[in-house]
Design a protein around this nucleic acid. Structure first.
Lengths: 344, 344
DNA sequence: CACGGTTGAGAAAACCTTTTCCCACTTGAC
DNA sequence: GTCAAGTGGGAAAAGGTTTTCTCAACCGTG
């Protein structure tokens, strides 16, 4: 009765459902139904087919399956964030959410090149992706590629979406609020905000939230996203004869790092004399500052997870409310503010 | 004569070769041959079919094509480098090399989880990837997943490969040599090497190359891959009564950053008093040090490019010599060593 | 005029699955 | 003993493409 096809595995190429059917002495239709838990058949037959399939190492060909079902169990992730600082956590979240559903992710880094973007999008469409997630490095900029009437669902994550689309982004205002409230809670009174270029939407949003909590009259220093700007800002703050801050909310971790270094160089102690809080929770920067940086995490992985589930829902035809979804940030307490041993 | 099917584009779903054939008034076989430049037919027919296909926006379905040709024009990139520091440049290189060939890349981050790795590999095989590239964050460690008898080609890049496979890696010895020779050329005599854990193969390799150039008696300080170790190493070097170095070759850029910061804190000028050279050319670190860091670039993008072309060659059945291919590193001259204005 | 060779194009098989019928058989009720 | 209903399983089509084979028409040559 053990009628296994020795040739099946030797025959160069994959094991198909025909091999399973032959090995079980049934037709391929029955084999298919047995393996997919569809159709009617004896429980015993079903079990036997499954067992045999497992034994000979059968795995269904996703291409053939996709041809029929119009689902490729594949999605595309488009990004212009070359360095992957934002994209990688997003990607991790997407993959994490979709791997259980058997979905794999094409990653396409398109830089700022519209032509390259076009090529990648077409390649993905040819491969019948079930959907596309667009992500980037800036909330208020579009990717240099048109994703508008694509006949596959598109979801935007951490980049500006087309009108009428569904977009996921971090709630920067809430994140900033978290940071400033923390400084206030620690008793800081003379708080300032050192941040990036005012042209960034998230800069303005964070600055507004800061003003709401710290007070409209508290100063905001706009600059660039670099450590050296952090240095310069400290120089500026401590050079004049004005009030000396006791709390600095920085627009990102790199600026915070510059600020902390500059303060140390001036003999000002962090966090005893001045509390510093950053934004991004970019581990590589935040964990290496001295002292390690208290900062705001944008929960990009969760953002990716939700974007993944959403594009899947759209691909399956489930209805999804369009609009912008803001996901809350989280404050990561390390030692640059104090309060880390308080258990507040 | 203009007999275009208005319905073709309206019919929900993609435009198929049937639509092209119908629009051109020919059979699908002829259409296929016209579009693929195969078979025999009148030049005029060929051109006309191509024109019509373009007009109605026909794009071949890669799933159907792959089913027949056994080529999916898809490869998988497996990595355990969560943060993407090494993976992203490699990925960029692969993508760059393969996009012209119509190949897309599945990215799978598997952390250190063998089960997750297994799941992703199976998902990729189900999707009939033409090949797999394994990459990681360490030259002397395997990915936590078995890629040995997979019936698709596997290429290793920046991670340890299976015996008999083809593996691409950076030539760390040559890179280290480049760095130390640069210090020597600048007239530095009292060179030391501050590097990572001796358990890393590349650490030993770089250290050996350093010893060959600088002299066997020159000191090597093993530690960890962090800025704080850079600080500590400087403290150690400057605390005793011994000789003070005038050139420091660091095992990576983070250590170099720590070293430079520590030197500045002691009032030692870089590069006037001490030249510092790093390893990795991790832009985000190397460009933000003060002064910007002269460092060794491992050319990971080129490495990815070659890995991509190799796995493609294997997928197409072209013969490839197995073995380990070492790719040369490149010295990136910034200002931490001096010599940057010499044009040497 | 008969015939081999060329040219242009189509029919059909193949790739691997899933799904929709459809058929034969069993069971129980009347 | 006949019928209806239910059960287990198979044949075949469909999905979009490529490729092999076949066929008809046409050409020139002997």
């Amino acid at each position: 009765m053990e009628e296994r096809l020795d040739t099946a595995e030797e025959k160069r190429g994959r094991i198909t459902i025909h091999d399973v059917a032959a090995a079980a002495g049934i037709s391929i239709s029955t084999a298919s139904k047995a393996l997919n838990d569809t159709g009617r058949m004896g429980l015993e037959t079903r079990e036997r087919v499954k067992r045999i399939a497992a034994e000979i190492g059968y795995r269904p060909n996703a291409l053939a399956r996709g041809l029929l079902s119009k689902r490729s169990f594949t999605i595309g992730l488009l990004t212009n964030d070359t360095y992957g600082r934002f994209t990688l956590p997003v990607m991790a979240g997407i993959s994490d959410a979709l791997v259980d559903h058997g979905v794999s992710v094409f990653l396409c880094a398109i830089e700022e090149d519209p032509e390259l973007g076009q090529i990648h999008v077409e390649a993905m469409l040819d491969k019948q992706v079930d959907g596309i997630i667009a992500t980037g490095k800036r909330l208020d900029r579009r990717l240099p590629v048109d994703l508008s009437n694509l006949n596959v669902p598109v979801v935007y994550a951490f980049t500006e979406g087309a009108p009428g689309s569904v977009t996921f982004r971090s709630d920067d205002a809430q994140g900033a609020q978290l940071a400033v409230e923390w400084l206030v809670k620690l008793g800081r009174k003379r708080i300032v905000h050192v941040t990036g270029p005012e042209s960034f939407f998230s800069v303005r949003e964070r600055a507004d939230a800061y003003s709401k909590v710290a007070g409209e009259e508290r100063p905001v220093l706009f600059g660039v996203w670099s450590e050296s700007w952090g240095h310069e800002a400290v120089a500026r703050l401590w050079s004049g004869g004005g009030e000396r801050p006791d709390g600095i909310f920085c627009g990102n971790d790199q600026i915070a790092r510059g600020v902390i270094d500059a303060l140390r160089e001036r003999g000002i102690r962090v966090p005893q004399d001045v509390s510093v809080v950053g934004f991004d929770n970019w581990e590589i920067v935040a964990a290496q500052t001295r002292p390690p940086l208290t900062t705001v995490d944008m929960e990009l992985k969760e953002l990716g997870r939700q974007a993944g589930l959403t594009v899947l829902a759209l691909a399956e035809g489930r209805p999804v409310e369009p609009g912008i979804r803001k996901l809350p940030c989280r404050l990561v307490v390390r030692q640059s503010c104090g309060g880390d041993t308080l258990g507040i």
